[in-house]
Structure formats: structure tokens, C-alpha cells
Simulated scan of single mutants.
Amino acid sequence: MGMSLVCMFLGPILMYVSFSNQEKTLYIPLLILSLLICVLAIYLAFIGLKTIMDSMFYKASN
């Protein structure tokens, strides 16, 4: 969940930086990187929430 939180802030910040510098040569790679970080944040959040929910509601079978 901590890495998801970092990615939730880092992705949009990088996206803002890339959109504000569209005339630079690193516009496209930075935009792709920021989109990947945003997708990674969503993935890590789902994995973290699934882990928390499984630990709370897991029923051990005998």
C-alpha cells in the first residue's frame, strides 16, 4: 500500500510535467512512464486491498 501511495503521487506529477513541456524531446517517454506509473498505482492498490481483505475475512478450513 505504501508503494501504491508513492505511485499515486508520482504518476500525476510526472504527467503534469510532461504536459507542461510538450516541445521537449522527452515529452513522449515521460508521458509513457507517467501512464505506466499510474497503472502500477492502481494495480498495487488492488493487490494491497485484496491482501488486507483476505487477512480479515480468511476462514481456515479444517
Rank of each mutant, 00 (worst) to 15 (best):
L30I: 03
N21K: 11
P29N: 07
K24D: 07
L40V: 07
Y16H: 00
F46G: 09
T51C: 06
L31E: 03
L26H: 08
V39C: 10
C38L: 14
A45F: 14
L40F: 11
I52H: 09
L14D: 02
K50C: 10
E23G: 04
T25L: 12
L30D: 00
L44V: 03
K24T: 12
Y43F: 15
M15R: 00
L14Q: 05
L31K: 06
L14N: 05
I52L: 15
G48R: 05
L30M: 14
A41M: 02
F19G: 00
K24A: 12
G48A: 15
K24M: 07
V39G: 08
V17L: 10
M15Q: 03
L49V: 09
M53R: 14
E23T: 09
I47L: 13
G48V: 08
L35K: 03
L40M: 14
A41T: 05
P29Q: 07
L30S: 12
F19C: 06
A41K: 02
L40D: 06
Q22L: 11
L44E: 05
I37G: 01
S18W: 02
L26Y: 13
N21M: 08
S18A: 15
L33F: 10
F46I: 11
P12M: 00
M53P: 02
V17C: 06
M15I: 00
C38P: 00
L26F: 14
I28T: 10
S18Q: 04
L14K: 01
I13G: 01
C38H: 05
M53S: 15
I52D: 09
M53L: 15
I37M: 11
A41S: 15
M15H: 03
T25N: 10
Y43A: 12
I28F: 13
I47E: 14
E23I: 04
L33N: 04
F19E: 10
I52K: 12
M15A: 05
M53A: 15
K24I: 07
M15V: 00
S20K: 14
L14S: 04
L30T: 05
I32G: 03
L26I: 05
I13A: 13
L33W: 01
P29A: 06
Q22F: 10
S18L: 01
S34P: 02
I52A: 15
L36V: 14
P12F: 01
I42W: 05
L49N: 15
K24F: 07
G48D: 08
F46A: 10
Y27D: 04
L26S: 11
P12I: 01
M15C: 00
S34C: 02
Y16S: 06
I28P: 01
P29D: 08
T25C: 06
M53C: 11
L14G: 10
F46L: 13
Y43S: 09
Y43M: 11
G48I: 08
L40A: 14
T51I: 06
L31M: 14
F19V: 04
C38T: 05
E23P: 00
K50I: 12
P12Y: 00
L33T: 13
L35F: 10
I37S: 03
S18M: 03
A41I: 06
S20D: 13
L33G: 06
L36F: 14
T25E: 12
V17D: 05
I28M: 12
L40I: 09
I47Q: 13
A45S: 13
T25F: 11
N21I: 01
I42L: 11
L31V: 04
K50E: 12
L31H: 03
V39A: 15
V39Q: 06
P29I: 08
L49G: 15
L33K: 01
L49Q: 12
E23R: 09
I32P: 02
